[in-house]
Amino acid sequence: SRSVIRSIIKSSKLNIDHKDYLLDLLNDVKGSKDLKEFHKMLTAILA
C-alpha cells in the first residue's frame, strides 16, 4: 500500500533529497497498477 511504500522510503539509507524526491513522486502516482510499478522501481533502487 501507499503507506507501506512511504515507510520504506523514510526508513531507507538514501539521503534526504532523494527521499523527498521519491515521496513527491509517490504523491503523483495514481492507480494500483502505477503503485505496483513504483514499488518495483523502489525495490530496484534500494537493492
Results as ranks from 00 to 15, higher is better:
residue 33 K to T: 08
residue 42 L to D: 02
residue 37 E to P: 03
residue 13 K to F: 09
residue 43 T to W: 15
residue 27 N to W: 05
residue 33 K to P: 05
residue 13 K to I: 10
residue 36 K to P: 03
residue 33 K to Q: 08
residue 47 A to G: 09
residue 30 K to M: 07
residue 27 N to M: 10
residue 24 D to P: 01
residue 24 D to M: 14
residue 17 D to H: 13
residue 15 N to P: 13
residue 45 I to Y: 10
residue 7 S to L: 13
residue 44 A to P: 03
residue 21 Y to I: 06
residue 38 F to T: 01
residue 6 R to A: 11
residue 34 D to G: 15
residue 16 I to E: 13
residue 28 D to A: 14
residue 17 D to V: 13
residue 1 S to F: 15
residue 38 F to P: 00
residue 15 N to A: 14
residue 46 L to W: 04
residue 3 S to R: 07
residue 21 Y to P: 00
residue 1 S to Q: 09
residue 36 K to Q: 10
residue 37 E to G: 07
residue 44 A to E: 07
residue 24 D to K: 15
residue 18 H to T: 13
residue 25 L to D: 01
residue 26 L to A: 01
residue 30 K to G: 06
residue 39 H to P: 01
residue 6 R to W: 05
residue 47 A to W: 08
residue 32 S to H: 10
residue 28 D to W: 08
residue 35 L to A: 03
residue 23 L to R: 03
residue 43 T to M: 15
residue 33 K to I: 07
residue 24 D to Y: 15
residue 11 S to Y: 11
residue 34 D to M: 14
residue 45 I to S: 03
residue 33 K to D: 11
residue 15 N to G: 11
residue 38 F to Y: 04
residue 33 K to H: 11
residue 14 L to M: 04
residue 45 I to K: 03
residue 17 D to N: 10
residue 33 K to L: 07
residue 40 K to P: 00
residue 5 I to F: 05
residue 40 K to V: 08
residue 10 K to E: 11
residue 34 D to E: 14
residue 18 H to S: 08
residue 43 T to C: 09
residue 16 I to A: 14
residue 25 L to Y: 04
residue 27 N to G: 10
residue 19 K to H: 02
residue 41 M to H: 05
residue 19 K to F: 03
residue 28 D to C: 10
residue 27 N to V: 06
residue 1 S to A: 14
residue 35 L to W: 05
residue 27 N to I: 04
residue 31 G to K: 06
residue 16 I to W: 09
residue 6 R to L: 09
residue 43 T to L: 15
residue 25 L to S: 03
residue 23 L to H: 02
residue 43 T to Q: 11
residue 45 I to D: 01
residue 18 H to V: 14
residue 5 I to R: 02
residue 10 K to V: 12
residue 4 V to M: 13
residue 4 V to P: 03
residue 2 R to A: 09
residue 7 S to C: 08
residue 12 S to Q: 02
residue 13 K to P: 09
residue 14 L to A: 02
residue 29 V to D: 02
residue 41 M to G: 03
residue 9 I to T: 01
residue 2 R to K: 12
residue 20 D to H: 15
residue 38 F to W: 03
residue 21 Y to G: 03
residue 3 S to L: 13
residue 37 E to L: 14
residue 36 K to V: 10
residue 25 L to R: 07
